[in-house]
Design a protein around this nucleic acid. Structure first.
Lengths: 208, 208
DNA sequence: CAAGCAAAGTGACATTTGTCATATGAAAAT
DNA sequence: ATTTTCATATGACAAATGTCACTTTGCTTG
């Protein structure tokens, strides 16, 4: 089995080579340390599996992966992640990466590669735990940026629960007219027309 | 490595035993053919990894898995799926299963087990392809059951887009009053009060 | 054919909603 | 100490909404 490794840290890359080759079942035919190199290596070596660091200087492992998969849709890319790369995981998943494993998990890497070789996808357990959340990841709506005050936000949420102005007023100990004014302002700020659109906005933009 | 296998089809289970033991790296210590057996086996053998068929007579592999994980939260369960088990995959994923592989993929099974052994999660590629969709799978709202006609449903959707009665009327070539009546009926059927609650209902019950 | 049924519509009505101009009191800024 | 700002509030108004009781129209179906 022919493997290629790309990691910012050459020491890591070399350690991987040692570990992987020790089993005698695979050879690390190329080592790179940047996204650009990864692409070149893939083109020339066309390894069975390529290990990629997600974060590297210059072109990230992700961008490199995208390029490689564009040229070689069957490429088997296995990402090495440190942990805090949550945001990237979803992207890579959609992109078609075959998996993620933690760099620290040395013993796990060889079996993972073999599984990938067999057409499977592999995820370190800590990564797996996150996937349910990540998949339905909502990119936090920025109330600040839209000039929405906390109170306005609160009112928006109550509208999005289906409450009437009177009910909202009761809930927040405000006058009904006050609530109307708040909503009026909210609609203006968000360029909406009525409370229903506000609710829709909430479910599609804020909480989606 | 001590493995247990549970499969409705004894022949499959025996073939697996042969395949897995041929590498010399693992032993299949127990074979079962029902959910109930799976639980008993797990209790007595406590294998490193347990292979489970999803569909079995009587208690399904899923239910058995749930029970096992209740008793042994660290259990490593690897499901064998045939394909069309889409619905179950999500459930098993949330439950904490370590993976799914296609029964047909004989060569892939041993490496998958090793990866699981190392704390990773493994998914056959065809399963992986589905996961993005599966994750955000909505359990289909049953309009029929609530006595919602196709037209009513259509109107509900337009309300949920934030359209006014007039706009809906225009869009569907109906009179505005007609639309009002439709909505009135819809609210009655669903025990809601106004269009905003209808939109909320849509996002929380129908499309959620 | 006639009765019946469902889809679409009308009109009247009460309520709710959204807008706007303006007012009040308290806190913050000058 | 005054001005400004902010949150809250009011009242008046038009428009949109929801309800209800009735048509109208065009099939089905007995």
């Amino acid at each position: 089995m022919r493997i290629a490794v790309t990691d910012d840290d050459k020491l890591v890359a070399l350690s991987l080579k040692t570990i992987l080759e020790s089993s005698g079942e695979m050879t690390v035919d190329a080592i790179g340390s940047s996204g650009a190199e990864a692409i070149q290596i893939y083109r020339s070596v066309q390894p069975d599996v390529m290990l990629l660091d997600i974060r590297m200087e210059g072109m990230s492992g992700l961008e490199a992966g995208e390029e490689i998969l564009r040229e070689f849709p069957e490429a088997r890319l296995l990402y090495l992640t440190t942990f805090s790369d949550d945001e990237y995981i979803v992207r890579a998943l959609k992109m078609g990466a075959k998996g993620f494993i933690l760099k620290q998990d040395f013993e796990g890497i060889a079996p993972a590669i073999k599984a990938v070789m067999n057409g499977q996808s592999v995820f370190g357990s800590r990564i797996m735990d996150r996937i349910p959340q990540l998949m339905q990841q909502r990119q936090e709506f920025d109330f600040e940026a839209h000039g929405i005050s906390p109170k306005e936000r609160e009112i928006m949420e109550l509208v999005a629960e289906g409450l009437s102005n009177k009910e909202i007023a009761g809930r927040l100990f405000l006058g009904e007219g006050t609530v109307r004014n708040y909503i009026s302002v909210l609609l203006e700020k968000l360029s909406l027309r009525d409370r229903t659109q506000l609710a829709v906005f909430y479910y599609t933009e804020v909480k989606a």
